[in-house]
Amino acid sequence: MVRPPRFDTDQLLDAAVRLAASGGPHAVTMSAVAQAVGAPSGSVYHRFAGRTVLLAEVWLRTVERFQEGYLAVLTEEPDPHRAARTASRYVVAWCRENPHEAVLLLYGASDFGRADWSEEHGRRADAGNSRVFAALARLAEALGARDEQARDRVALALVDLPLTVVRRHLRTGGTLPPHAEDLTEQCTTALLT
Rank of each mutant, 00 (worst) to 15 (best):
E77M: 01
R114S: 12
L54F: 01
F112T: 11
P78L: 04
E76W: 00
R114T: 05
G69D: 10
P78F: 05
E148I: 09
L143G: 09
Y45K: 14
T164W: 05
Y90Q: 02
F133I: 09
L60K: 05
E148F: 06
F48M: 15
L161F: 05
S41P: 15
V63T: 13
E97W: 03
A49G: 13
A36R: 09
S118T: 11
E57F: 12
L55W: 01
G113W: 06
N129K: 03
R61E: 12
F112H: 02
R153I: 09
L104A: 00
G122P: 07
S130D: 11
A49K: 14
A127E: 14
G113R: 12
R114L: 05
Q67G: 02
G42I: 04
R131H: 06
Y45Q: 14
P99W: 01
P80N: 04
H46Q: 11
V159G: 02
G50P: 11
W94E: 13
A142E: 06
V92E: 15
L106P: 01
A140M: 07
R47H: 14
L136M: 01
A102M: 09
A137R: 06
H81N: 06
R151Y: 03
H121C: 08
F112C: 14
H100C: 02
A84Q: 07
V159L: 15
H46F: 10
S41Y: 10
R51W: 07
E77L: 09
A72W: 09
S43Y: 06
L71Y: 04
S130F: 08
H100T: 06
V92K: 07
E68Q: 10
A84F: 06
W117G: 04
A87N: 07
R124P: 11
R47D: 15
V159N: 05
W117Y: 03
A157S: 05
G128I: 03
L136K: 05
R123L: 14
E148L: 13
V44N: 07
Y90V: 00
